[in-house]
Design a protein around this nucleic acid. Structure first.
Length: 207
DNA sequence: GTCCCGATTCCCT
DNA sequence: GGGAATCGGGACC
């Protein structure tokens, strides 16, 4: 009996909060694909629309970021460095362009599909690298731009988010976001503490 | 039209 | 720890 048998959907209201509320609540939820892949969300980052210089929406609406401006509960997918897809959970009300970047999953189901999607040569590979990093998790889950805009609240969607009863961490510490050049002082990265599948170790600022 | 660079990953050292 | 890969968006002329 796999996790999906006891999973339930998250209602639209779950996604209407701000990214700083939704991001930590997404920890320990399951990202599930229609072909049987699933992974537990262990690392996320909040992006706050027009207020956030690191956000794609900082300079307004474009064809690429249009999905960010929809109401919460949709999937925003974009291409990074010309070769990696990155998946975001849109949250907040319509027009706010708030989103949560999914940075790492703990693989749960469909690991064979994930391995096949990630690696042509399976030798010398570590399953901890399947979904460790925003580009890797999209490759493992088979997510690309064709999934941009799908409804994450529907179990019938190609990708959706399920709650299988595992609670999020009680008070995950916010730490600095990764891979950006502006807004680096904002502690908007949230992770399940000490999880081996994090894209990077959680390091709190000493100052 | 041209130019720069990115919410990254991989492989080598 | 460093550099290459790779390409679309957005700024600017």
């Amino acid at each position: 009996m796999g996790p999906r048998s006891k999973s339930r959907r998250l209602g639209r209201t779950f996604y209407t909060g701000s990214p700083l509320v939704v991001a930590p609540l997404l920890l320990n939820k399951l990202l599930v694909t229609a072909d049987g892949r699933s992974g537990r969300i262990v690392e996320v980052e909040a992006y706050w629309g027009a207020q956030d210089p690191a956000s794609h929406a900082y300079r307004g609406r474009t064809a690429r970021n249009a999905t960010m401006f929809r109401r919460g509960g949709h999937l925003y997918v974009y291409l990074s460095y010309g070769m990696h897809w990155c998946a975001n959970v849109v949250c907040g009300p319509e027009g706010e362009a708030q989103a949560v970047l999914l940075r790492a999953l703990q693989p749960v189901e469909g690991l064979d599909l994930m391995r096949a999607a990630r690696w042509r040569d399976q030798r010398r590979r570590d399953d901890r690298d399947l979904c460790r990093g925003p580009g890797r998790l999209c490759q493992a889950m088979g997510i690309d731009r064709s999934d941009d805009g799908i409804d994450l609240t529907r179990p019938s969607s190609p990708v959706w988010i399920a709650d299988d009863g595992v609670a999020p961490p009680e008070s995950p510490a916010g730490t600095a976001r990764v891979g950006i050049s502006v807004g680096t002082d904002l502690p908007w990265r949230f992770a399940v503490g000490d999880h081996p599948g994090l894209s990077r170790p959680v390091v709190r600022r000493s100052g």
